Amino acid sequence: MPTFLDRVRSTIPASARERWYVISGVIVTLLVGLKVLDQATAAAWSSVVVATITLAFALLYSTSPWRTALYGLLLAVQGIAQLYGILNGSLWAAIIALAATLLGTATAAAKTPTTIDGEVVSVTDTEY
């Protein structure tokens, strides 16, 4: 029986990550063009959105249970911190960048499993 994450993975393929980055960039640029955001705020929001997309895909496609738990925790903390204004966008983006470096999110993102028709066809598992 497929798990919740399996159903989400089949709905949001790993290949969608690039599309999400592009769409988020377009939305932020549009908001700046419409004068909804200024340059500084746009930079902060861009950082937060990119960090969130990176963590979300790392969470979805992680092959290590402890890493999956840490990614989930970071996403939850980020949402709560943003909601209550505990951290501003720039500071949170710096924290996420540090956490990503420490957890190897970039490495995990680079090793996202390749799936075709819902079946994993290749994955390099370097997580311990």
Rank of each mutant, 00 (worst) to 15 (best):
Y71E: 05
Y71G: 01
T52C: 01
A44W: 04
V36L: 15
S15Y: 01
A109E: 08
A58T: 05
I116M: 10
T114W: 03
V32G: 03
P13L: 09
A81R: 06
S46W: 08
T124I: 14
R19S: 13
S47V: 08
Q39S: 13
I80V: 14
D117F: 09
S15W: 00
Y128G: 15
L91I: 10
L103I: 05
I96C: 11
Y128W: 03
L75Y: 03
V121C: 05
A108I: 00
S90K: 06
G72I: 05
L37Y: 13
Y84N: 10
P65C: 12
L60I: 04
S122A: 11
A56Q: 04
D38A: 02
E119V: 15
T107I: 05
G33D: 00
Q82G: 11
L70M: 11
V22R: 12
I53T: 13
D117Q: 14
S15C: 03
V121I: 15
A43M: 08
I27L: 14
A44L: 00
G89T: 03
L75T: 08
K35D: 10
A109H: 05
V120M: 10
A94Q: 08
G25P: 08
G85I: 01
L91K: 07
S62P: 01
Y128E: 03
G89M: 04
V120I: 15
W20Y: 15
T11P: 01
L55N: 11
A56W: 06
N88T: 04
A69E: 00
I23Y: 12
A97R: 04
L70P: 00
A110S: 11
D125Y: 06
A106S: 09
A43N: 07
P65F: 09
A43V: 07
G33E: 02
V121F: 05
T41D: 07
T124Q: 07
T3V: 01
V26W: 03
F4T: 14
Q82E: 08
D125E: 09
A76T: 09
T112M: 14
Y61G: 01
Y71H: 14
F57Q: 13
T63A: 13
L31Q: 10
A106E: 06
I27N: 01
S10W: 05
Y61R: 07
L87Q: 10
V50E: 02
Y71V: 02
L91R: 11
I80E: 10
